[in-house]
């Protein structure tokens, strides 16, 4: 694997299905079952859906390392300008950032559509499997980059639509990565990504870590959330 270089070409990363261990606990969580008792029929369906998902999945990501400069009300990343305070705060002190899009691929998209025809329950479970899988994939990419940038710190990933970072940033972000051509992720007119199980984000790389260490449920105040672990 070649290393990410500042302003270098787009790098495409692929993971094999067996490299990614989709946590069952996350799947249950996205199904709203985090605190439910185990049910054999549901567990069986989760297993079946996970196996089917892994048969069709194509974990792909594309990324670039871009320079970050604080400028009037936002951040200049060279290829585009990211307005707002949220990302600026997240990236404070980072001279550069990894910009990436990751996906589980189009075959899973079709799989879900197909399941919805005969079995809404299966479609629901496949949806949860997809969410758990893409999150896990992004976490692994984070670990890969953390190893690559040893001695530096990676910030938690920040996506268009978080806080005050406009969703409109999707367009230049996907464009600068050639996301449609490179990994098959396209935008709708309303700036949603297809395949749906895709993530676009910016990850700051700096000499210091961020002060907020917690990224799990305990960092959130919403105690009555159905997804809370």
């Amino acid at each position: 694997m070649t290393k990410l270089e500042l302003n270098g070409p787009v790098q495409i990363i692929e993971y094999k299905p067996q490299q990614i261990n989709v946590p069952l606990q996350s799947i249950r969580r996205y199904l709203g079952l985090a605190r439910a008792q185990l049910d054999d029929a549901v567990e069986e369906m989760i297993q079946e859906c996970l196996a089917e998902f892994l048969q069709a999945v194509q974990f792909k990501a594309c990324c670039r390392l871009l320079p970050v400069e604080m400028r009037g009300g936002g951040l200049d990343l060279g290829a585009f300008f990211a307005p707002g305070k949220g990302l600026a705060k997240n990236l404070a002190g980072c001279p550069q950032a990894i910009v990436f899009v990751a996906t589980t691929g189009m075959a899973n998209e079709l799989q879900r559509k197909r399941a919805a025809v005969a079995s809404p329950a299966k479609a629901l479970v496949l949806d949860a499997v997809g969410t758990a899988a893409i999150e896990q994939f992004c976490d692994l990419l984070g670990q890969q980059w953390a190893a690559e940038f040893e001695g530096l710190y990676l910030r938690p990933r920040f996506s268009p639509g978080y806080g005050d970072l406009p969703l409109a940033l999707q367009t230049p972000l996907l464009e600068v990565l050639g996301a449609q051509k490179n990994i098959g992720v396209a935008l709708t007119d309303s700036l949603l990504m297809i395949p749906q199980k895709s993530v676009s984000a910016i990850v700051g790389v700096g000499r210091v870590g961020c002060t907020e260490r917690r990224t799990d449920c305990s960092a959130c105040a919403k105690a009555d959330c159905a997804f809370r672990l």
Binding site: S119, P120, A121
Partner: peptide, 11 residues
């Protein structure tokens, strides 16, 4: 009863 079970019964 949770959502996946509700749907499986519906089917």
């Amino acid at each position: 009863v949770f959502l996946p079970q509700l749907l499986m019964s519906a089917e």
